[in-house]
Lab assay of single mutants.
Amino acid sequence: MQRVNMIMAESPGLITICLLGYLLSAECTVFLDHENANKILNRPKRYNSGKLEEFVQGNLERECMEEKCSFEEAREVFENTERTTEFWKQYVDGDQCESNPCLNGGSCKDDINSYECWCPFGFEGKNCELDVTCNIKNGRCEQFCKNSADNKVVCSCTEGYRLAENQKSCEPAVPFPCGRVSVSQTSKLTRAETVFPDVDYVNSTEAETILDNITQSTQSFNDFTRVVGGEDAKPGQFPWQVVLNGKVDAFCGGSIVNEKWIVTAAHCVETGVKITVVAGEHNIEETEHTEQKRNVIRIIPHHNYNAAINKYNHDIALLELDEPLVLNSYVTPICIADKEYTNIFLKFGSGYVSGWGRVFHKGRSALVLQYLRVPLVDRATCLRSTKFTIYNNMFCAGFHEGGRDSCQGDSGGPHVTEVEGTSFLTGIISWGEECAMKGKYGIYTKVSRYVNWIKEKTKLT
């Protein structure tokens, strides 16, 4: 034993070699072989497995989906700052455009905790909710729209109204504003409101030439003092309507412009014939205590009207009353817009006519005020429907199939267009061939041609 100890002390290297040989010859039971080890760690190889990531292109799944990435790591994937920024906006807080917040056709661009709407022409605001041009839906104005110097929408209202708090709607500024039905039992019968379409306001006024200088022999019209197929109006439903009495009662109609003036057809009036105007009328054979009678003290036909040349060209006249009318729910003026808007309103496509005229061709006159909704007829169809001249200051309205029309005794009465609950004068009943005849239409004086003249002559002093 002493000898062994001496050998170990003198030859430590020998001992180490012996131990190493023993270990190498022993069977290893701690580690699995290569094949079995792979069965336990069965993990798919990654895209760049075996390579240094710093030297390969980034992978979106590896960089940002398996674990949260930084902007720089995302930049490695896209290799483009702009594309990385677009991805980053949604990656950080989701897609803010998912709810489609942009209105009126706006395009949404996502941002971090926010979004941006790219608005089409005519709109602005956070969600493109603000109209900035009158060309689109009248700028959301209830009545009139004008573009300011910086191309912003400025709404306005006709006389007797003021802008509401929203700067879009119009509200009454006087007790009985024009064009409004205020009798409670008839307010439910107000005709369907007309909503502004998209309009090209630059070209809204037709490029028409008034044929002022045409000389033409007097034409022989049949029954051209021209509501057939209409309905009984309720008291106060058309408070701007008046009836004219002269040699015979209810020979023509008219509309209240203001307390002192009536507008009617020029062919209705004769110099030297006494005319009485009755406002607030409903049943011409009954006294309903809503009527107001006034005498006409002055007749002003349009300066281009000449019955000797043509009885229905420039067929418009103004009547001055001896005493002002007292405005109330049964006696209310009709609204008159400017030339541009009167023309736009007419193009809405349908209007209402009213009167006490004959209820059928050569038949009896109506006792109760009649009204009828009539569609506008395109000019080409209008011209083809008659052998008589249709001037540019006239328009056609009615039904091709016949059966409904204005008729004798309705002449001078109103053709009105309702705009968001307020009625505007767009025409004056003038003439036609018979009444409600198939293929024939009622012919009306186009008020847009005469609004400046009306307003100039009827100013209240």
Rank of each mutant, 00 (worst) to 15 (best):
L211D: 14
I336D: 00
E420Q: 08
F87K: 15
N310I: 02
M394V: 10
E208K: 10
F123T: 05
K188V: 09
V153I: 11
K438C: 07
Y312H: 09
P177M: 02
Y450W: 00
G58I: 08
D33C: 03
F399V: 14
V296H: 01
P333G: 03
E401D: 13
N283G: 07
Y22N: 04
T422M: 03
N452G: 13
F424Y: 10
S385A: 13
T422P: 00
S329Y: 06
V183S: 12
Y330H: 10
A317M: 03
G432N: 13
K247G: 09
G349F: 07
T133P: 06
P12K: 10
T458D: 00
I7V: 14
A250S: 12
N138F: 04
V92W: 08
Q408L: 14
N42E: 08
G272Y: 06
P375V: 06
L327T: 05
K89M: 08
S187G: 09
T225V: 13
V154Q: 14
Q167F: 10
T342I: 02
C102G: 00
D338N: 10
H361A: 06
R140A: 15
Y305A: 02
G439E: 07
F221M: 09
G363S: 12
L23S: 02
A9T: 12
W356R: 09
E124I: 03
A307M: 11
S217L: 05
L369E: 06
G412F: 07
I390P: 10
G403E: 14
N48F: 04
G349I: 02
R62K: 09
G412W: 09
F123D: 00
R373D: 03
G355S: 06
G439K: 09
G160M: 02
V257G: 01
E320S: 02
T389G: 14
E67F: 04
N203L: 09
T271M: 10
I214P: 12
G122P: 13
P235D: 04
V353I: 15
S107Q: 11
P120V: 05
I429R: 15
S385L: 10
F176N: 07
N213T: 07
T225L: 11
A26Y: 06
D232S: 13
E67G: 09
S385H: 14
L244A: 02
V183G: 11
K126P: 11
D200C: 05
K126E: 09
N127G: 02
P12Q: 09
W453R: 00
G21M: 15
N393R: 03
N283Y: 08
Q167S: 12
A380I: 09
K311H: 05
C134K: 03
N258H: 04
L20I: 08
H400G: 14
I284T: 11
V195T: 08
